[in-house]
Design a binder for these strands. Structure first.
Lengths: 336, 336
DNA sequence: CTGAAAGCGCTTACAG
DNA sequence: CTGAAAGCGCTTACAG
């Protein structure tokens, strides 16, 4: 394998000094236009490839973004990650993605590894748990870091947090169901005591209270499997319940599957509203009503906020919540 | 922000030379055990972080794997990517992931960017199309590269290909449906003339022929939306059809949704077999029969094959196909 | 088993 | 607007 050409080869080929080539590479305005063209031609002729390791050694930014996701297989997070990655790519940044599978040890390991690779920034949807402050090593390394979707480190002055306004979503969903005449509304899914569960529940609990109705919560994993299990149980034990707000669309889709199996007609006998409005929800039967968090847009916004930070020095606010809306479909309205 | 300690600081702190520290960092067997411990302690004391840029400049491997995926939002590919990434992470490799969204221009761009970052290897599930040979720049850079799941470059001697034995899967699915008494079996989804479509169809076409039955294919995007559309059309025009083999589970799940909507009982009036056996398929109602390609295992296998290549120099075979099996569930067997 | 020295390919002041 | 020189933090022969 032939050695790759270096900046020095390019300089010789173009008849300039290597400093000049370096300036061209950085799009400096100091270089005369004709010189720039000569250099560009030399680069093309030689098939020169920029060596970021060498640049990194001299202090240049790596152009690498660390994106750490607690559950990459969940379509909600996949959508977020794909959107953020593509936004970064458009601006010339590469993204190192790691799935931590909710494991704080794996998370600690990938953080260390990414620090070694000198990532220019971290965007983290963190895992819960773990003994130490997971972000302390990042802080020591002085790398700009945003927490997204989940806040596990309370120091939002150091690690700004961005998410959706889940509480407002809970309010919208609950009022919608009450408007439709439901009174025995339950909240299904979400692990107990998790901040995100509390947020997504809070609007429901508050709105139920405001209407003198009694809230009731079935905690559990935010998965299809759990939704399905709960749905199968409704049959035996809680026939008076007439509606459910689900922690996530996955839970709601699981309930849809379970209720279909036991012959309960969703939209008629029983109403369901999900959370996230993932793509699949508009294609399910019956089509699922859901609190829409535009995740693709959120991923783009988060990536752009991070770029504004590392490129222009505009630090994001400590906490930023993006608005949500309620998408009403068959699962609450009934057959259209 | 204080400057990070370097190998020289560690050397001073441990009372050795920096060469020795470097050897310790590389787990060299040349270093005396007590010396190694001294160095390890100094590293911990100082909070030293290995600088991979500097190492890269001297020719060390970057420990970065480029993973390029044509459609990261599709759960089939998400599962593959997450599994491969976690396997690499376990061995200390970080993974740069890029979603190309089936766009060959984006693909070319991220390949260039990853080459600049000096990735040690590429694992690519490529996009179709584009003017130039997308892998030519990789070849010039001399980076080990595997094609997975889709073969777009015929030079498998340069870019080994690994996938599932889709043809065998098509045979299994078709024979299963014929055994159940179906005769008017169609194949639904998959873009025309794509190699992967041809592969997944081929077992179906062949088996139909062997039973003197006429194959019939409805080409289309491998999406829920397409599956749903086709299902809604069955109602009007093709009542004689009694079963479908779908290009992917996404198509099958779309059909399930559409058929539920028009009141056709899947498993009884109409039988469906999907392809991929994604997690959701076992939770759908009715539960979906599917050709199981163990994607998580495949991701792990592909990652390990790549590691064997770059670590031990064991090049994968030109073409490797992993076995598939048929998971029979309600959508073909009927209600259990 | 350990140390002194050269050099990887860039960027960055500093001259001119 | 361009060039000569130093140096970023490692690794790698080479001595010892």
């Amino acid at each position: 394998m032939k050695k790759r050409p270096t900046i020095l080869d390019v300089a010789r080929h173009a008849g300039v000094s290597k400093s000049t080539v370096s300036l061209v590479l950085q799009n400096s305005t100091l270089v005369k236009e004709t010189t720039r063209e000569d250099v560009a031609k030399a680069i093309a002729d030689l098939g020169y490839v920029y060596n970021r390791s060498a640049a990194g050694l001299r202090g240049a930014a790596s152009g690498l973004i660390g994106l750490i996701i607690n559950d990459l297989r969940n379509p909600f997070f996949t959508e977020f990650a794909a959107s953020a990655q593509m936004t970064f790519a458009q601006k010339g940044y590469s993204t190192v993605i790691a799935n931590t599978d909710e494991d704080p040890d794996i998370q600690a390991q990938v953080i260390d590894s990414m620090i070694e690779h000198d990532v220019s920034a971290f965007v983290i949807s963190p895992s819960y748990g773990g003994d130490e402050q997971p972000f302390d090593r990042i802080r020591r390394a002085g790398i700009p870091t945003m927490q997204v979707l989940r806040q596990v480190d309370e120091r939002t002055d150091l690690f700004p947090f961005a998410s959706h306004d889940y509480k407002a979503g809970g309010v919208l969903a609950t009022e919608h169901l009450i408007d439709l005449g439901c009174r025995n509304i339950v909240f299904v899914g979400g692990l107990e005591d998790r901040p995100i569960t509390l947020e997504r529940m809070s609007g429901y609990v508050e709105t139920m209270g405001a209407h003198a109705l009694v809230p009731s919560v079935f905690h559990g994993r935010p998965s299809r499997v759990f939704g399905r299990e709960i749905a199968l149980k409704f049959l035996d034990s809680h026939r008076q319940i007439d509606a459910a707000i689900c922690f996530s669309d996955l839970v709601a889709l699981g309930m849809l599957s379970g209720l279909a199996e036991v012959g309960i007609r969703v939209g008629e006998d029983f109403k369901i509203v999900g959370f996230d409005d993932i793509e699949e929800s508009s294609l399910a039967y019956p089509r699922l009503s859901s609190v829409r968090c535009d995740t693709a847009l959120f991923g783009k916004n988060a990536a752009e906020a991070m770029l504004a930070w590392i490129v222009d020095g505009e630090r994001p606010p400590d906490t930023k919540r993006y608005g949500v809306e309620l998408t009403k479909r068959q699962s609450s309205l009934g057959a259209g």
